[in-house]
């Protein structure tokens, strides 16, 4: 049974000698990302509170860091990196497309309902 693993991460920037070593490397990376998230969450730097595309810049950073973490969990812990391109695309693209669609629909609708409460005749106040 051959179990070749691709041992390079960051597009070949970091190369590991064995799969075990790669696992620990990815763990260190994930820990650093989580630590950054927690530190930013506690400090909430004033500079990142500005609105970018309808959300606080800090929230965008959190979401991007989360996707980065998700990528490394899927690619290196779940060995997606070693699967065939066809399997990878079937799983990843389907999921991402459906999730983006769902998020768009629901957040759009949520924002609309908010505006109805805010500007419309329906009120929810004291």
């Amino acid at each position: 049974m051959a179990h070749e693993h691709k041992l390079a991460i960051f597009r070949g920037l970091v190369k590991f000698k064995s799969n075990t070593q790669k696992i620990w490397g990815v763990l260190i990376f994930l820990t650093i990302v989580t630590a950054i998230e927690v530190i930013l969450g506690i400090l909430k730097p004033e500079a990142l509170m500005g609105q970018v595309l309808g959300m606080k810049a800090l929230n965008w950073i959190f979401i991007i860091l989360t996707i980065v973490k998700a990528y490394y969990i899927t690619w290196d812990f779940m060995h997606m990196r070693d699967e065939l391109k066809s399997l990878r695309r079937m799983v990843v693209w389907t999921t991402i497309f459906l999730i983006l669609y769902l998020i768009f629909i629901l957040l759009q609708e949520g924002g609309y309902v908010f505006n109805v409460y805010k500007d419309g005749f329906i009120k929810r106040d004291f």
């Binding site: 998020i103 957040l107 949520g110 309902v113």
Partner: peptide, 9 residues
């Protein structure tokens, strides 16, 4: 996403 919906609401 439903959580996001309620939150945006």
């Amino acid at each position: 996403a439903a959580y996001g919906f309620s939150r945006f609401k």
